[in-house]
């Protein structure tokens, strides 16, 4: 079963268009794949975390950089009154599933949020349903529930304060916080 790393490949392809997956999708792909630098596309450094050109990084460092880039996107957004993951949300969750699987000591907190429409306590329940949807996706991917805690904030912690759909869509979210 190399389910997790296949998922990682999918994420890496989405995020960086890189070919770390070309090494065959073994479990080791994340940390130890000896993928030669020459096989990689010569362009598009992802994000220069270290001050060096990404092309000069070792494969392990490269993978870490890519994972960090994927984990930087840690917010899963939802449709109005919905708790099902969008495809974009699912890819965000996959990145965290891979991170948690490859770092068994790592833990995350899922913070569920709702937009301001509806009553506060009902929104607390709705936001919890969203963080449970994310939790379910993580555990389906093989993450142990001990690595996950959830907290619902309902509509109490908006990131955007206007009563407009564009603002509401930013507030309907689950934030995945690395602890």
């Amino acid at each position: 079963m190399n389910f997790p790393s296949l998922r990682l490949c999918a994420v890496l392809l989405v995020v960086g268009g890189l070919s770390a997956c070309a090494s065959g999708g073994s479990k080791d792909a994340i940390d130890r794949s000896p993928s030669p630098a020459a096989e990689r596309p010569a362009t598009r450094p992802l994000q220069d975390f270290s001050g060096r050109d990404a092309n000069s990084l070792s494969a392990a460092e490269q993978a870490r950089v890519e994972m960090e880039a994927a984990l930087a996107r840690n917010i899963v957004y939802f449709e109005y009154d919905q708790d099902t993951l969008t495809s974009e949300g699912a890819s965000t969750v996959r990145a965290f599933a891979d991170y948690l699987l490859s770092n068994p000591a790592a833990r995350v907190r899922l913070e569920g949020h709702a937009d301001e429409r509806g009553t506060r306590e009902y929104n607390l329940a709705l936001a919890e349903r969203r963080s449970r949807a994310v939790e379910a996706a993580l555990t389906r991917a093989g993450v142990t529930s001990a690595q996950i805690t959830s907290l619902s904030y309902g509509e109490e912690r908006p990131t955007c304060a206007e009563s407009t759909e564009s603002c509401w869509s930013q507030n309907r979210r689950v934030e995945i916080i690395r602890l």
């Binding site: 306590e121 607390l124 329940a125 959830s150 619902s152």
Partner: peptide, 12 residues
Amino acid sequence: KTLVSERGINGS
């Protein structure tokens, strides 16, 4: 005083 603080929602 804390009346209840379970995992998940403690509300209403």
